[in-house]
Design a protein around this nucleic acid. Sequence first.
DNA 1: AATTCTTCCGTGCACGAGCACATAATTCAA
DNA 2: TTGAATTATGTGCTCGTGCACGGAAGAATT
Lengths: 362, 362
Amino acid sequence: MKNRVRIKDIAEKAGVSKGTVDRVLHKRGNVSPEARKKVLAAIEELDYQRNIIASALAYNRVWKIAALLPRPEEDPFWQQPKLGIGRAHRAVRDYGVTIDFYHFAEANANEFITASQEILDGEYDAVLVAPIFAKEGHDFLDRCQDKGLKYVQINTYLPREDENFMCYIGQDSYQSGMLAAKLLSLGMAEGNAAMILHLEKAVYNSMHLVEKEKGFTDFFNQNSDKSISLFQTSFEDIFNKDAFANFVEKTLDQHPEVGGIFVTTSRAYHLVEALERLGRSQVKVLGFDLIKENLKHLETDRIHFLINQNPLKQGYLAIINIFNQLVLKKDVQKIQYLPLDVVMRENMQYYVNVEEELHLII
Amino acid sequence: MKNRVRIKDIAEKAGVSKGTVDRVLHKRGNVSPEARKKVLAAIEELDYQRNIIASALAYNRVWKIAALLPRPEEDPFWQQPKLGIGRAHRAVRDYGVTIDFYHFAEANANEFITASQEILDGEYDAVLVAPIFAKEGHDFLDRCQDKGLKYVQINTYLPREDENFMCYIGQDSYQSGMLAAKLLSLGMAEGNAAMILHLEKAVYNSMHLVEKEKGFTDFFNQNSDKSISLFQTSFEDIFNKDAFANFVEKTLDQHPEVGGIFVTTSRAYHLVEALERLGRSQVKVLGFDLIKENLKHLETDRIHFLINQNPLKQGYLAIINIFNQLVLKKDVQKIQYLPLDVVMRENMQYYVNVEEELHLII
DNA sequence: AATTCTTCCGTGCACGAGCACATAATTCAA
DNA sequence: TTGAATTATGTGCTCGTGCACGGAAGAATT
């Protein structure tokens, strides 16, 4: 590593010792104005940049990060961010970063509260959280704020202004609705209808579902080259297959002109299985997330489009961003939207592969 | 950084000195079988993993990488890999990695030869190359092989078997043709025609254009739910706008049923401008690459789809892969296809943003 | 004038791995 | 059985940065 400017070089140039340079660099005080000036001039002139490697080695400290996510055993979606966090951890481990996982059930806000309390008591440097409960999420982040604990949000965005909010990594739900509408509209003819289907409990507590629906309807309002009618439905009890098939059948009978169905959650595969039972597979289906169950149907073109939420990347980038800010002291962007990947049978393999093998520094 | 197992810990556990452990780890020999056995047992038991940070600092060597690409001033596409290489360089700089750029004109194989000779003379540890000339590319890689110089290919893949071939980072051209066909077919009706348009000189010297065309036609052969006819055209002299407009007009007059045009290169914007002059903007257009000229038309829905070749990521990952193999001594995958991103007006902003700010370790 | 207290600055060790050199143990030859 | 050659092992310095400690110089107090 020749030619790289070292602290020692600055010290020589400025005619002081490396200790003084160090005090200037770290703003530790106890430096005379003249010495300070000479050091700063030397830093400027030689274009000094701290050697991160040596710095990390010398620091020899532990950066404690907590990750607070829904239980991955219950929903395959949440395995992906956890995987991404693990990958990122391997990339930054040698800098002294440790990560502890805390989990809660997706339907259980109390578990969220309990886990978040443990984190607050745990002397962490930063926390990565998926604040899927709006109220409890805000409460937790308020307390992080009080305690001076830095946090990164993934997947769900709770708008925040305080100093400790590092960044949000996730999707633009509204725009994903727009994109869904565009994709479904491609194959639809004049007079067709588009159906919005929420397969989730308590839809209107989930801001991102509301936003998706809004984007979807706005697209059709703004693009009126074909006249397409819209309607919205939802169904909660998806594990009751008969009831669900009945519901689908009745809805389609009422709306025989349906040309496309927008499933706002990751459960498009349930719809497809119902459609198949009913022998109504000609309608186009769009859903979210590259989970196994969906991919199976994408491969046979029964699901026509999936929008990828990049959950692995969400976890990966959240850790990398914490690392950049905490350890490398870089500024990071507050809102980081991941791309809305359009996945079809013809390009799915690459997204699935990428999930398997994110080719970054390990 | 507590609890991490160090060489010293292994030495103590095995009852030898850290020098002996070092000799075992680096297979330097001069270790008695018994000592070796004890050391290996200790490594196993304590699950030792080398501290990359400390290792890089101690190595204190320079890794010289050469990058051989077309001149970015001549084609905006090639600015992107160069940007990606720069980003990656910042991420690995402190490990002692240096990168020198060599450029050649896209139409000038002699410049390629000259530059590659300089690289061969330059004592590099690895070279990143876009071997867009098949013959000259193979010649160069043969000489790398003779000299023991490791190489990574981006963008264009020349199949190689030798030891020095590290990996290929780029696209699957055949599959991108398939995807293009699927996308254009979505909006087409029974009896429509799809047009393949090569806007490039010497098309049949460019393997990737041939592959794209093949994928495109294979899609329609394999999916015959609608009967769509296909035909192929090409035009070289794109900078002669009148001649090109004439050509487009004549072609469309001969094929009035054209519902979609597949532009196999990054020059879709030329087509769109010609169509506009002719007042024939209703036909769907698909092209490649998120360059400024294309994005302008994507935004107004005159280009309907762009397939992203991820040129920035190609450059970024090429360097990261060299780093992983050279410095960190990890195995890397030989063929790494990047995803085929479907970009439309509704999701373009995210891909453009990502190009601006790749959020990785800097 | 002698003392404490600041302010300023330099020296030296630590981090963990790599590697050169010195030294100890063993083998082999004469 | 002694000396040389070979093999095995340990010691200590290096990389660049961070930080603690201690000393010097000057200001403030008695």
